[in-house]
């Protein structure tokens, strides 16, 4: 990534992360007391904590220009929360694209320089990649909600089915036998 662009990003990182958090929390319009933003205790306010640490983690990796697979766990933490909060898929994931606007605003006048402009395009492609990864995570979370329901049913009934000889587990020895072939 362009050195100058990177320097600007590093310099404005805390502004960007603050703004990004504000934008995400704006998707909870009912939270008028500002609880999600202001309560700093990570156990009293797990959403605020997950988002603020997640954002910092993702930005850190993006600014350093590292491979964003490093930041997947942070992204996963945020998406897990968004996936169960009554949001439509678009609303749940909008925050990733909003980062583009935030970075453009943070660059201010500098955006006019052709060198910066090119670097910005490159950076925005990274955000697009991030969005695709986020989409995978989101779908995985939603699928898991349904899996949890079936798993729960299995836990409730498996012993009964086994007892009635309607279901049986394959003994471990049989697996070993197959492995040897």
């Amino acid at each position: 990534m362009d050195i100058k662009f990177n320097e600007i990003l590093k310099e404005k990182k805390s502004d960007i992360s603050k703004r990004w958090l504000e934008v995400i929390l704006a998707s909870y319009p009912n939270d008028k007391s500002g609880f999600l933003m202001n309560q700093q205790d990570r156990f009293a306010n797990p959403i605020g904590y997950t988002f603020s640490t997640g954002i910092d983690g993702i930005l850190e990796v993006l600014v350093k220009g590292e491979d964003f697979s490093e930041s997947i766990s942070f992204l996963e933490d945020i998406i897990k929360v968004r996936a169960i909060q009554d949001f439509s898929p678009a609303k749940a994931m909008a925050f990733i694209f909003q980062l583009k606007t935030i970075v453009r605003e943070a660059l201010g006048k500098d955006i006019g320089q052709s060198q910066i402009n090119l670097a910005l395009l490159e950076f925005e492609s990274k955000i697009d990649d991030l969005a695709l990864t986020a989409f995978d995570i989101y779908v995985k979370c939603r699928e898991q909600i349904y899996e949890l329901r079936t798993d729960e049913l299995k836990r409730m009934t498996f012993t009964l089915l086994k007892k009635a000889n309607l279901m049986s587990e394959i003994p471990v020895q049989e697996f070993e036998h197959k492995d040897q072939k």
Binding site: D31, S33, F35, P46, I47
Partner: peptide, 10 residues
Amino acid sequence: DKCHFYIATG
């Protein structure tokens, strides 16, 4: 802000 449902939904 002590209810787990509030904390998790706002």
